[in-house]
Nucleic acid binder design. Structure first.
Length: 279
DNA sequence: GTTCTAGAAC
DNA sequence: GTTCTAGAAC
């Protein structure tokens, strides 16, 4: 049998199309990756068709404090994580209403996207690459492990090889991008991601995108909120875990500053206009 | 993560 | 008056 890596190589060289080749997918799943269960597929459809429907009964009060909202969001995400985890090991069981509710939460969207062959631009036995649904630059991919790891906080020494492989695949994506421009790329993780399931951002540094709309978007990629992949690997090797500095969330509120010349700009439109002078 | 919109800023 | 942001809601 042809090894998945070989098929991946063929795909990367354009000999076969990884996003449409059934043979490619079957071979990959035959090489150790779990075939998404019918239960998961069904949940995936639910998420796409009705992303908000299950939330109607849990509206929060406007007067709740920001701390309340933070803890509530965490609790919701964790609950949803646990549900998804449970589903993956008990696929033969009947769905409960609660299961659908949590799988449909917005923070679980990556789990659905990564399983969708239409979203996948590369995959092997360890990771899958998808295009960011709302790219913040001309090129913006996410590298996700098949293994369920909620976030950077869950990474340990045992994940070192996996994280290094994610970086290697990211480098391949950069090297094999469609255009031959000399635009720079960065590869890294958001210190405090919104979406569950650890994901490596591979993003070109033009930041030329209509989806880049606010200060949070900008600062999440241009301040230390963005932790370089190599730094994550180094932390894992030296400390056995990834530490996020206190006050990192405050970085999102910093003034808008050009990542090339460090000039401060007053608004997002002004920043976008300024970026044109560099690209 | 995004969308929506009140009200701040101009 | 318009532009833009920040925070609630999902």
């Amino acid at each position: 049998m042809i090894k998945c890596h070989s098929v991946g190589l063929l795909a990367r060289r354009g000999i076969i199309n990884p996003s449409s080749s059934l043979i490619y997918r079957l071979l990959c799943w035959g090489e150790g990756q779990k075939q998404p269960s019918k239960t998961k597929n069904a949940l995936g459809s639910k998420f796409k068709e009705d992303p908000t429907g299950s939330q109607s009964g849990t509206k929060r009060q406007r007067e709740s404090t920001s701390e309340d909202r933070e803890s509530q969001r965490d609790a919701q995400s964790m609950k949803a994580d646990k549900q998804t985890e449970r589903i993956s090991v008990s696929v033969s069981h009947a769905d409960s209403p609660k299961t659908n509710e949590n799988a449909g939460h917005w923070s679980q969207g990556l789990k659905t996207s990564m399983q969708d062959p239409k979203m996948q631009v590369y995959k092997d036995d360890k990771v899958v690459v998808i295009k960011d649904k709302y790219p913040k630059a001309r090129h913006h991919w996410l590298v996700l492990p098949w293994q369920s790891i909620p976030s950077l906080k869950a990474l340990r020494t045992e994940h070192c090889d996996l994280v290094k492989h994610m970086q290697k695949v990211a480098d391949q994506m950069i090297q094999q991008r469609p255009d031959c421009s000399s635009v720079q790329f960065r590869t890294g993780y958001h210190a405090i991601p919104s979406m569950s399931h650890v994901h490596l951002h591979v993003i070109s540094q033009d930041f030329d995108s209509p989806c880049l709309k606010n200060k949070k978007h900008w600062n999440s990629f241009t301040t230390d909120y963005f932790i370089e992949s190599k730094d994550v690997i180094q932390m894992l090797e030296t400390d056995g875990k990834v530490t996020v500095k206190e006050g990192t969330s405050e970085l999102l509120k910093l003034p808008l500053r050009c990542h090339v010349c460090r000039k401060e700009l007053p608004t997002i439109p002004a920043l976008k206009e300024h970026l044109k002078s560099h690209f």
